[in-house]
Design a protein around this nucleic acid. Sequence first.
DNA 1: CACCAAAATGGAAGCGCTTCCATCGAGCAT
DNA 2: ATGCTCGATGGAAGCGCTTCCATTTTGGTG
Lengths: 344, 344
Amino acid sequence: MKRNSTIDDVARAAGVARVTVSRVLNNGANVRPETRERVRRAMQELGYSVNQQARALASGMAREIMLIHAHSPELEPNSYYNAGLELGALRGCSALGFDLVTRAVDPEEKNRFRQLSSILDGQRPAGLILSPPLSDDIEFIETARRAGVQVVAVSAGEQARSSVLAVGIDERSAGRLVGAHLASLGHRRIGFIKGPPEHRAAALRYDGFLDALREAGIDDEPWTMTGDFTFKSGVEAAEQLLRESVPVTAIACANDDMAAGAMLALHRARLDIPEAISVTGFDDTPMSEIVWPPLTTVRQPIKDLAERAVHLLVEHQSKGGVHNDLLPFELIVRESTSRPTARA
Amino acid sequence: MKRNSTIDDVARAAGVARVTVSRVLNNGANVRPETRERVRRAMQELGYSVNQQARALASGMAREIMLIHAHSPELEPNSYYNAGLELGALRGCSALGFDLVTRAVDPEEKNRFRQLSSILDGQRPAGLILSPPLSDDIEFIETARRAGVQVVAVSAGEQARSSVLAVGIDERSAGRLVGAHLASLGHRRIGFIKGPPEHRAAALRYDGFLDALREAGIDDEPWTMTGDFTFKSGVEAAEQLLRESVPVTAIACANDDMAAGAMLALHRARLDIPEAISVTGFDDTPMSEIVWPPLTTVRQPIKDLAERAVHLLVEHQSKGGVHNDLLPFELIVRESTSRPTARA
DNA sequence: CACCAAAATGGAAGCGCTTCCATCGAGCAT
DNA sequence: ATGCTCGATGGAAGCGCTTCCATTTTGGTG
């Protein structure tokens, strides 16, 4: 029955005191480089890894990180996105010896600030992870900070990113990537189904999209429609477009759900995808491989975002400060996009 | 800055020693009922909750639970199912102060027993969560037990359920529910797309399905085809059925992915769902709401299964024994099923 | 070369809990 | 009554780590 080695084993092996090992562990100051190295080597040889439980217990710091996701009663929850965030956050917490507490708050609720304050008061978490559109709600963020809780905003817009810890992707570049893809295929008349205006990240995606069109010499304002990220709103937006007989050869959507909805509307209207109209999504949810045809979309590392958020929170414990982490994204080209057929 | 109350606070409030509170906490023996009650009340009043970190540290038990999911290189991983399991397991671990370690093992790999042994040897987890088809691999389970690790089988077949801890749903009844639904709508000729034979739970679903048909007076063997749970295999199975011109009015599938595949094949063949053919799935993945038409399916509480699995593992620590937890499931009737039209 | 601040290191306490062992009565047979 | 067992309770140690403070070492200065 092999017992994991402890900090004392390392200390003994390195010929130093336990405290010194602890300092090395926490990148503490006042350790001579050679001592540090010796301790490092001892850790290596013993295959040592810290016991997060013990660490958390000793340091006595709050052991909880709170994940708040938006959940309006009317809107169906974006289960994939939220599940991904929770999964990532849990992984991060697990690795760092924290507990995750998940809460839902209605972003429309007038009362949400008071609500947050009372939650924070009861729990005193070590940090708060906010997802859109809460991560763009500056007043909400400020309420949390006033309560002395470190905040990290996930996929937030520029304002939030410049005032608290943040993780996300370069939304604007991601949007540009989609626009460039469509433009390079030869599409000139493109429709865009946007997300809700409070969702700053989606707005940035749209800006990037416009950039790409402009760079490709397409200066006409594209036809746009605003959805609320649900499948249903995608259906409705596309139906609206068909009703108006807008002559587009491609429709870009601010997320996959709306793209799937749009595809359904097009299917119903007996329009072939991508022959008649190309469609793009955003997020690369599992659904994008299931719909027909498989959806061209942007893969966003949702789990990694949340995991990173936890680390950020722990690293910047009480240091306050602004830190903006951008994670990589990727355009996944599938069969829902092709060059426009010479017809429209 | 409110500090959470500790076991000592409770002890003081109840006028007993710390140990006694600990005994109450762990349902230990040798505490007089009235003392127990007094302690309980004190806990209540102080809003006490155990510090799992401290508990885990003190009890010195392994702090890790290992989730092993099957992952063959050829087969696309069932991301929704696996993500759900991981999410649930993480929640459970988080609540109980355990860490979750996730591993993937190829169930086809001859070498998997040795592989498992070496993993277990290195990590010594407090328990092992096995998902199908590994949870039906008796020899695999035995290997783990021989290494002295408690095992819980998720969604396993009867053999595994009778030899280790297990959580799942009553697969047979769930299958019966689907069969009864279809039969009650008036379908007499029904096709069934099965899962792989090693997947015992899927086989049970099929048995239950047959039971229902028999109960409805349908004694003909239904037309069946075996898939591997992938979207693609669903497409192929349905195409096979169409090629053979089997005169079914409904197709039941062992999971949602195959159902979605079958639907695609039917769409391509210009068959309307549910007018020409009804389709059912199993699992209620998010996809079932996205496909067109929305899929009638059985909702299985995947996250809860995994969460329960963790609890089982911890409760039965070193007690060995067999325990079979059945969680509730639910038939979700959507638009992919209707009475057969008077045509076939 | 003595002197001192600053850097490097170590000792000890304690986080909240469990576990091991000792203690204390009560109830029972002798 | 006396001795014993057994159920109920408490004392003390310690899990692996951090933190506070004391101590030793270093290297720069006059």
